[in-house]
Amino acid sequence: MPSNSHDFIQPADASERAYLESLVRAEYDRSHPGDTFDDMKRRMPFSGEDQGLYRDWIALAAARADAASKARPIAA
């Protein structure tokens, strides 16, 4: 996952951001006991670490979305 701040994903709009977040939200919550994805998002304005975590999780979500779109057959 990219950690360079110049290589992060910027969703086009709120609906794309919500879609990407939905792809990783449950996994984040499972892998961070006692913390939630929404907790991390609330801390982002004050925490560079949480900004980096969010950026990495969104990059993972974008990679998953890209793989899913390539796996779908193209309708003729």
Rank of each mutant, 00 (worst) to 15 (best):
H6C: 06
W57M: 08
R72G: 07
L60T: 15
H6L: 14
E49K: 15
S69Q: 12
A26M: 03
R55P: 00
A12W: 03
R42M: 10
H32Y: 15
Q51A: 14
D39K: 11
R30D: 11
D50T: 03
P45E: 04
A68P: 06
L23S: 01
Y54V: 07
Q10A: 15
H32A: 05
E21D: 10
D56A: 14
T36E: 01
F37W: 11
A62I: 01
Y28S: 06
R43T: 10
A18W: 02
M40N: 02
E49Q: 13
A12R: 08
D66W: 14
Y28H: 10
H6E: 00
F46S: 13
A62V: 01
A76M: 13
D50S: 02
E27F: 07
P45Q: 04
A61E: 09
Y19F: 11
S15M: 07
M1Q: 10
I74H: 13
S47E: 01
D38H: 12
E27K: 11
F37I: 06
H32N: 12
A65S: 11
I9E: 00
P73F: 07
E49C: 07
P33Q: 06
W57R: 08
A12V: 10
P2R: 10
L23F: 04
D39T: 14
A76T: 12
D50V: 13
R42C: 03
Q51W: 06
G52M: 12
L60N: 04
M44K: 06
R55C: 05
A75D: 11
S69P: 00
F46D: 09
D29P: 03
N4E: 14
N4I: 08
P33E: 03
E27R: 14
M40S: 04
E49A: 12
E16F: 06
R72W: 04
E16P: 08
P33M: 00
V24G: 01
E16M: 14
H6T: 11
P2S: 11
A59H: 10
S5Y: 05
D35A: 08
P2M: 05
D13Y: 03
D66C: 03
E16G: 09
H32M: 05
N4Q: 11
K70E: 14
F8W: 15
F46K: 14
A61Y: 04
S69N: 10
S31V: 13
A12P: 09
V24L: 01
M40A: 09
R55Y: 07
A12T: 14
D66L: 11
S15L: 03
L53G: 03
G52I: 12
D7F: 00
A61H: 09
A12E: 08
P2I: 05
L20Y: 04
Q51K: 15
S31G: 09
I74S: 10
A14T: 13
M44R: 08
H32F: 12
D29Y: 03
R55I: 02
S31E: 13
R30V: 10
S5E: 08
M44Q: 13
M1S: 12
F8A: 10
K70D: 15
F8G: 05
G52E: 05
W57K: 06
V24I: 02
A59S: 10
P2G: 06
N4L: 09
R30T: 12
P11A: 00
A75P: 01
R43Y: 07
R42V: 13
N4D: 15
E21F: 00
S5D: 13
S22R: 11
L60Q: 12
S22N: 08
A68D: 15
L53C: 08
